[in-house]
Amino acid sequence: MTAFLDVLGQAMAVLGGLVFVAAGVGLLRLRDPYMRTSAVATAAGVGVVLVVGGSVLTSPTVSDLAKLFIAVVLQLATSAVGGMTLARAAVLSGHAFADGTDTAALEPGERPGHG
């Protein structure tokens, strides 16, 4: 069983690393700050969970499981909030959207509760 957990943990860590590589490629290839923010926030949430979860599986202890739980909860909460904050800052600073992006919900008279 220990060998299986070790292999699974290593596979999860490698997969998490690949998620970060994909996010890095996304930073170079995506067209506007909003798409880039989405890629990075998603990678932060998923990639960290996979890497930390994989490292815990290679050496599972009760204290490491508690640390994993805390790290996952904090990472998922902060990556979502951070991603939304960066996107909002880009909107407020006037960064252009990529061609073809529907921005109708951002018009002052179109937002729910603001019309």
Rank of each mutant, 00 (worst) to 15 (best):
A3N: 15
A3Q: 14
L5A: 11
L5W: 09
L5T: 01
D6I: 08
D6C: 09
D6M: 10
V7K: 11
L8A: 08
G9I: 12
Q10W: 02
Q10A: 14
A13K: 08
A13Q: 15
A13R: 11
V14L: 14
G16D: 06
L18N: 07
F20N: 05
V21C: 03
A23S: 09
A23R: 14
G26F: 08
L27P: 01
R31P: 14
P33D: 00
Y34P: 01
R36N: 09
T37V: 07
T37Y: 06
T37H: 02
S38T: 13
A39W: 01
A39T: 00
A41K: 11
T42F: 02
A43Q: 03
A44H: 00
A44V: 11
V46C: 04
V46K: 03
G47W: 06
V48N: 00
V48Y: 00
V48Q: 11
V49Q: 06
V51Q: 02
V51R: 09
V52Y: 01
V52M: 03
G53T: 00
G53C: 06
G54N: 01
G54M: 04
S55Q: 14
S55V: 11
V56E: 02
V56P: 06
L57Q: 04
T58Y: 06
S59A: 12
S59N: 11
P60I: 00
V62N: 13
V62F: 14
S63R: 14
S63V: 09
D64K: 14
D64P: 02
L65F: 14
L65Y: 01
A66H: 11
L68V: 10
L68K: 05
L68D: 05
L68W: 03
I70G: 04
V72W: 13
V73W: 04
V73L: 15
V73M: 13
L74S: 08
L74R: 05
Q75S: 12
A77N: 04
S79K: 01
G82R: 00
G83N: 00
G83M: 10
M84Y: 07
M84I: 15
T85G: 05
L86F: 10
L86I: 08
L86H: 02
V91E: 08
L92Y: 07
L92M: 05
S93I: 09
S93N: 07
S93D: 09
G94H: 03
G94M: 00
H95F: 15
H95V: 07
H95R: 11
F97W: 12
F97E: 09
A98S: 09
A98Q: 08
D99C: 05
D99E: 14
G100L: 08
T101W: 03
D102R: 11
D102F: 03
A104K: 01
A105W: 12
L106T: 10
L106S: 00
E107F: 06
P108I: 02
P108A: 07
G109E: 15
P112A: 07
G113D: 07
